[in-house]
Design a protein around this nucleic acid. Structure first.
Lengths: 346, 346
DNA sequence: ATTGGCACTCGTATTTTATGAGTGCCAAGC
DNA sequence: GCTTGGCACTCATAAAATACGAGTGCCAAT
């Protein structure tokens, strides 16, 4: 990264700020008026030429002003940005709506809604699947018709998973209750991974010698683990339609690809997962994200933590030309508040 | 509805068919060539003038051809349409993917995916909430920290609902188990409505005289009903982005309103609910739906039934100029197959 | 190093002109 | 009394011509 002298920094910053608010290429005269520097447009033109040589700004055509390049934005968010403190009202709103939340889905809903509403961009929140660390708490088997058994699994943090398994024969209610009791007595409090491991060991033993109850329990368990994790980590997207009002993303083709990405969720989820390491707000500008659909976009995300441990990510997707100064603190605070809300309610 | 003679019908039908495929106003010469009638353009112009007087077609401006009005489309779908039998391949695909489905969410997912893929439009599927008729089957209470109790309710059809209730005091595991037993013994198999009613009667009695177990059970029940239905009927929308490729909905403003409607879900859900009565495919053309966001759209929906009873709706949203002849049978069959799949798996 | 001056570029908006599909109407024909 | 060819007319759309002006790069002067 080439080093910039003070004046260049000021000019680059004001250029980007103006471009972000106006959306039009910024010329030397405008810049002279708004930079606060007491120099003529001609001087500024010289500096601008230098900035262009460095690859920080570019002019769309000969007789237009300059616009920031991706690298320009990068420098801006890394070292020039002056994030705005959060407006009193929005702070109140965020706290208000996130505190009175009762459970996890409600919290996610509130956070995504608030994010998209406050930033007027598309909000994304990654929702962790089965919390890996949380222990086994209770299990119930409910017999259905057609050799099917409904399994209800409650984990330590109060999450409920249920899935249906198909069995080879019909089990009586009594058998199912016994099997459940076996689990509940033997494994309560242990981690799910631990339960799985112990069970596999039990299965290794000659099943002929097991008593009937155990056998039933073991068959259930096998089927259960075979059914696999039903609840993958997933992604909530809200306020996509906000992006349709943004002229930068005007052409339908770009927008279509973006919406497809929202629908598929896979790529976005991957992007969020990858940036889970490390605290604080992360920003992907344009193709930094590595996904074609996000070429014209920036992604601003932050991790949210429950009990000091990061369990998911949240953020917004918007045009490269977004108001980072306004968006960053919103994403930052929302992540913190969501973490708090979940810590309290879990 | 003014009656049309044979020739007018043929002309209206071919005009609409051509307009649907080409998207451009249809003139008298084109119509003469494609109607199969052996008459001159001049004659056709006379008929077209009549059709315009009746309000079935209209010309965007003096020197363009004609396009169908809303009323024109209505007449078309009501009496002129010649629905195409379902393509062999798509039939196979529908059956294949909908048969191998294991549970309700999976089925809904498959149906919406198939609908949007086959029609290249936006698919909507209404997902019934707590099935009102299905009986009470089993309940479990799991104590959490902070005076919270997790309630797991299994209904007769194998659906699981869970919600968290807040209690005034801490209950021991034993108390909770006893309370659950009370419910499970007393109410299994009864309708949810019936359970609620009986409980209210129990509550009426002086709670002083109840034994402790009953008291606990009753407190749980009160809290539970107060918590209200968590799982409302909801709506799944898939393939919205298909609509962005459709030139008819080209202007961003229309599209934005449409996507907002998809996001809010309320209006669409209401529309689907209202048309639940009666069997078969229903079509709302343009503002027939009564919602501004759908002004430029048509909605094609059909109810799906489990055990002879309609439990939800499914269909597509697309431009008024959609290929009804192709879409109607797809929606129709998908509804039937989804019903079958759910009947088998429930 | 900074600045005013100046010729030059080039995207955008506006106007002009041309094109042609389609119409309504009329008078003649079956 | 339908049907039809003929014809003048309309008007959206596309292409070409013109005007405008914001912004630039460069240079000579300070």
């Amino acid at each position: 990264m080439p080093t910039l002298d003070q004046r260049s920094e000021i000019l680059l910053r004001t250029l980007i700020e103006r471009y972000i608010t106006d959306g039009a290429p910024v010329g030397s005269r405008t810049l002279a008026r708004h930079s606060g520097l007491e120099v003529s447009p001609a001087t500024i033109r010289n500096v601008m030429a230098d900035l262009e040589d460095m690859g920080l700004i570019i002019s769309p055509h000969t007789s237009a002003g300059r616009v920031p390049t991706q690298m320009g934005y990068r420098v801006f968010v890394d070292s020039l940005i002056q994030v705005q403190p959060l407006n009193q009202g929005t702070m109140m709103k965020l706290e208000g709506e996130l505190v009175e939340v009762q459970n996890r889905p409600q919290a996610i809903e509130a956070a995504s809604g608030l994010l998209s509403e406050l930033t007027r961009l598309a909000a994304v929140v990654s929702v962790p699947g089965s919390t890996p660390g949380s222990g086994f708490r209770q299990i119930e088997f409910v017999g259905l018709n057609n050799n099917r058994v409904l399994v209800i699994l409650v984990t330590g943090d109060g999450e409920v998973q249920n899935r249906i398994i198909y069995t080879e024969r019909v089990y009586s209610d009594a058998e199912l209750v016994q099997a459940a009791n076996h689990f509940n007595e033997a494994y309560t409090g242990q981690s799910l991974g631990g339960v799985k491991e112990k069970l596999l060991r039990e299965i290794e033993q000659d099943s002929e010698r097991m008593q009937q109850t155990m056998r039933t329990a073991v068959e259930m368990a096998q089927k259960l683990f075979a059914a696999g994790d039903d609840d993958k980590e997933t992604l909530v997207v809200r306020g996509e339609s906000n992006l349709m009002d943004i002229p930068d993303l005007g052409d339908m083709h770009t927008l279509r690809k973006l919406f497809d990405a929202f629908g598929a969720k896979r790529d976005l989820l991957h992007l969020l997962d990858e940036s889970m390491r490390g605290p604080g707000v992360k920003i992907f500008i344009g193709n930094e994200s590595g996904y074609e659909a996000l070429e014209e976009c920036s992604v601003v995300v932050a991790p949210y933590k429950v009990d000091e441990e990061t369990i998911g990510m949240l953020g917004v997707v918007g045009p490269t030309r977004m108001s980072y100064e306004r968006v960053i603190p919103i994403v930052d605070i929302t992540a913190k508040l969501l973490g708090n809300a979940l810590t309290l309610s879990d």
